[in-house]
Simulated assay, not measured.
Amino acid sequence: MNLSLNEVEVTAKKAARGAGYSWGLAEEAGKATRWLCAQGLDGCGILADLLSATDGQDLSQMSPTALDNEWTAASGQLCPLIAGASLSDHSAQISQSGLNLSSVLSPLFLIPFAARLNGQSIRVEWNGGSAVTDGGNLSLSLNGTPTASAATVHTTDQPVPLSVVHTRAEPSDQDWATLIQLTGRTYAPATEESRLLGAGSGLSDAD
């Protein structure tokens, strides 16, 4: 498949909402997925894996329960969307001492949120990989497929080379089908009245 980033963002947003996230976090998911795809990463696949893991879970149990320099979750695993959306409120802390996160699902999803910490280059590290971003550019090192892992987020002086910006995404058929299936949950069930109106029943005042 070859899709525009606009289509990716809209579908990712609806899929996250269908998986149980609030509309606000779903919007964040759409933007983050788009950013990953623009950097040449498989944002749709990363999101599909995350939503498959969190679907049906109590997301409140996957939220940070402590916002000092060690973030944990009651379930034992942090959701990167929820944790990532909180990073901007703790940029000073990240600059001063860095931030440690307990086991994070799909740690690659932290990177788009780190990229939004304006004026700072941020390094995100997890077991098997690391990334440095200055907001628009990304330097990524991977050793295998990222899985749930402890992660750290901190500022860095490491230079970030210019990245190639991608304008299209190429998700796998399976990952895209997963996202489309989740978007279906955002549509209200049709009532008999709406079905008649939608079908254009052909009735008029003269009938």
Rank of each mutant, 00 (worst) to 15 (best):
M1I: 10
N2Q: 13
L5I: 15
L5G: 01
A15M: 04
R17S: 12
R17T: 14
G18T: 03
Y21W: 06
S22L: 06
S22P: 07
W23H: 03
G24W: 05
G24Q: 11
A26R: 00
A26K: 01
E27L: 11
E28A: 14
A29R: 00
A29M: 08
A29D: 08
R34F: 10
W35A: 07
L36Q: 08
C37T: 07
Q39R: 10
G40W: 07
G43P: 05
G43V: 13
G45Q: 04
I46Q: 12
A48V: 00
D49F: 00
D49G: 00
L51P: 04
T54N: 05
G56N: 07
Q57W: 05
Q57R: 15
Q57I: 06
S60D: 15
M62K: 00
S63D: 08
S63M: 12
S63Q: 14
P64C: 03
N69S: 14
W71C: 04
A73F: 02
A74L: 11
A74M: 09
A74E: 14
A74I: 03
S75F: 02
S75N: 06
G76N: 01
G76A: 08
C79I: 04
L81S: 08
L81M: 08
G84D: 05
A85G: 12
S88P: 00
A92R: 03
A92T: 11
A92M: 01
S95K: 14
S95T: 11
L99I: 05
N100C: 06
L101P: 06
S103G: 04
L105F: 13
L105G: 01
S106P: 00
S106V: 07
S106T: 14
P107F: 13
L108I: 13
I111D: 06
P112R: 05
P112M: 09
F113H: 13
G119K: 12
Q120A: 13
I122G: 00
I122L: 12
R123H: 09
R123Y: 04
G128D: 11
S130T: 00
G135I: 06
G136A: 11
S139L: 15
S139N: 10
L142Q: 09
L142N: 09
L142P: 08
N143K: 14
G144Y: 11
G144N: 10
T145Q: 14
T145V: 15
P146K: 07
A148G: 14
A148R: 15
S149E: 01
A151V: 04
V153L: 13
V153C: 11
H154K: 15
T155C: 14
T156I: 03
Q158D: 12
P159N: 10
V160T: 11
P161R: 03
H166W: 13
H166D: 07
T167R: 12
T167H: 13
R168W: 12
A169R: 09
A169Y: 13
S172F: 03
S172I: 09
D173I: 10
D173T: 13
Q174D: 15
Q174G: 06
Q174T: 15
D175T: 01
W176D: 02
W176R: 01
T178H: 09
L179D: 02
L179Q: 07
I180V: 15
L182A: 08
G184W: 01
G184M: 12
A188N: 09
A188C: 03
A190L: 15
T191C: 03
T191V: 09
E192G: 01
E193R: 14
S194C: 02
R195W: 02
L197F: 05
G198N: 01
A199F: 04
A199R: 14
S201W: 02
S201R: 01
G202K: 02
G202W: 04
D207I: 06
D207M: 13
